[in-house]
Write a protein that binds this DNA or RNA. Sequence first.
DNA 1: CATACAAATGAACATTTATTCATATGTTTA
DNA 2: TAAACATATGAATAAATGTTCATTTGTATG
Lengths: 96, 96
Amino acid sequence: MTEERENELYDLAELFKVFGDSTRIRILFALMGRDFSVNDLAAELQMTQSAVSHQLKILRQSKLVSARREGKSMIYFPADDHVRTIIEMGMEHIEE
Amino acid sequence: MTEERENELYDLAELFKVFGDSTRIRILFALMGRDFSVNDLAAELQMTQSAVSHQLKILRQSKLVSARREGKSMIYFPADDHVRTIIEMGMEHIEE
DNA sequence: CATACAAATGAACATTTATTCATATGTTTA
DNA sequence: TAAACATATGAATAAATGTTCATTTGTATG
């Protein structure tokens, strides 16, 4: 196996690791429905603002979500269609 | 969000967690090429037989790989096409 | 049936990681 | 500009997880 391939697989594992946490998956799923501020997300998921913010940071770093500022709030939304595609793909495997 | 949906998302995170480890991804990728015995996989990935066997157990439990016996060896192979689809999907996101 | 080979398993250890708590940063508005 | 609101961040803690080591289980064969 080439070193390049090895690295690719390593990156791939890193990507799936991001999806492999129920808090982050729930965040992504919520954002598939509509945009959310951090506080609203925390309320929706019944989690602390801090916990949600920490996970949003990871999602941002992975380029899975983006944010825009609206007044005092930061509004988060999916970065692109890959989020939806990957989640729907996983769902298909689950529902069997 | 319905309780059923919550559970579904939890299962989804569990599925992605399995893909979210470089050893397991490398195993899956190798098996996409051809079937392997445990020892051969260990040699291919340069890992101990034990480490590989432990990870294969997790992959078996997740129904991502299956195995057949051939003499003294256990030959592992992908359980179905989902493995390939999910990995290829992830690759697409990476290559951007 | 004893030995050799292949794989699986359990416990221990080290590492990673998610959450909490306290606090800092940034923005609006009275 | 002070106060209130919203988010981000750092350190600490607890829990989860991957690998190693030693050993067991299962199969073939001399």
